Amino acid sequence: MYQYIVDDFKEKIMKGEISGEEPIPSQLELAKLYQTSEITSRRALTELASEGLIYRVRGKGSFINKDYMDRANAKESKIHTIYLVYHTIPIELFNHGFFGDLLRGLHEKCEENQVAFQMWDIEKKGGLPPDADHSGWVLLPTPIETEYVSADIVAGWKQENRRFVTAHFYFPHLQIPYVIVDNMTGGYLATQHLLSIGHRRIGIVLTGNSPVEINQEFSLRLQGYKLALSQYKVGFDPSLVVVIEGVKEDSESGAQGFDRLMDLDEPPTAVFMSSDFKAIGALHAAERRGLDVPGDVSLVGYDDLFVSSFVHPGLTTVNQNTYLVGKRAVELLLDWENGGASGFKKDEIVPSLIIRDSTAEWIP
């Protein structure tokens, strides 16, 4: 019975039902409250004191130890589960190298910290993950036409003290922790590689509605492309920028963009395709035209898909290092347990250039 009283006190402390400012019931009051003997209630008080839960003040009574309450609250608020929260993203897309590596990084870092990991489709589940006191979220971006994860909604989650970070996108004005890939550096690396091997007329193929209506990722890759050109004193030629209308990345859009560039009066000697899907389409289009890659034209992709090392020729591409994005997202979430909740933290993961056989030195 005395152990029941001890356990009941611990639970009430955890739930915040007992204040540290008022004395707890006396030995006699405990006996009446739990309908037991004073011998049992005295034993319970002794156990509570020996465990450091309470301390006694002569003439005033027994009080909850504030240090224990702080430790209990910290333990109670510990993240037990991390959810990857997304909306309207087809589940098969997670087989894509970008998302697959991200999942691997998330899962491995969670296992390392003995935290459960789950995926959570807001649309399919009909709402947010449960157990807000013990969970953290990694939010993925949603399509533009979806309003579920708008800036206003995310701002509301922040006011509710939800623990979450955004991955692959961010809201600068909200100062919510985020981790993204440095897409501008990625675009720069791809273009600088082509410039370093002698190419000066370099095309780029993007996806969007127009050169000024492309998503954040492609816009930053375009900035990196422009930066590399400027550093090599190569003038920017708008005719070498092709935007294929749509939102889907596929080989057909790559073939279409490649054909438009090759139909120019002065076609480029190299093309930076803003995804590997488009680059693979460009390889097929080059073959149909009887062009040799990289002899007649060099190609660089973006994403480093698993298949990209096996196509012929092997595709030079940019690996976004999303495995590190996943690991870093978990680290930012768990930082709450170490007093980091009040600080705004952000991180940009630097991508890597993977050089294979689709690029070669250009000799005029």
Results as ranks from 00 to 15, higher is better:
Met1Tyr: 07
Tyr4Thr: 09
Asp7Pro: 09
Met14Trp: 11
Pro23Val: 08
Ile24Thr: 03
Glu29Ile: 04
Glu29Val: 09
Tyr34Arg: 10
Glu38Phe: 01
Ile39Trp: 05
Leu48His: 05
Ser77Asp: 12
Lys78Arg: 15
Lys78Ser: 15
Ile82Gly: 04
Tyr83Pro: 06
Pro90Cys: 11
Glu92His: 13
His96Gln: 13
Gly97Ile: 11
Gly100Asp: 07
Leu102Tyr: 09
Leu103Ser: 06
His107Glu: 15
Asp121Phe: 07
Lys125Asp: 05
Gly126Met: 06
Leu139Trp: 12
Thr142Pro: 04
Val149Lys: 04
Val149Gln: 12
Asp152Gly: 04
Ala155Ile: 04
Ala155Asn: 07
Glu160Pro: 01
Asn161Gln: 15
Phe164Ser: 04
Tyr170Gly: 00
Leu174Arg: 06
Ile180Ser: 06
Val181Ala: 05
Thr185Asp: 11
Leu189Arg: 13
Ala190Glu: 08
Leu194Asn: 08
Leu195Pro: 07
Leu195Lys: 09
Ser196Leu: 05
Arg200Gly: 07
Arg201Leu: 00
Glu217Gly: 00
Leu227Lys: 15
Ala228Ser: 13
Leu229Lys: 08
Pro238Trp: 14
Gly246Trp: 01
Gly246Glu: 00
Asp250Asn: 15
Ser251Asp: 10
Gly254Leu: 06
Met262Val: 02
Pro267Lys: 08
Phe272Ser: 05
Met273Cys: 12
Phe277Tyr: 15
Lys278Pro: 00
Ala285Met: 03
Asp292Asn: 11
Phe306Ala: 15
Val307Phe: 11
Val311Thr: 12
Thr317Glu: 03
Asn321Arg: 14
Arg328Leu: 00
Arg328Val: 06
Gly339Arg: 13
Gly339Met: 11
Gly339Trp: 12
Gly340His: 12
Pro351Ala: 10
Pro351Cys: 09
Leu353Ala: 09
Arg356Ile: 03
Ser358Val: 02
Ala360Asn: 03
Ala360Phe: 03
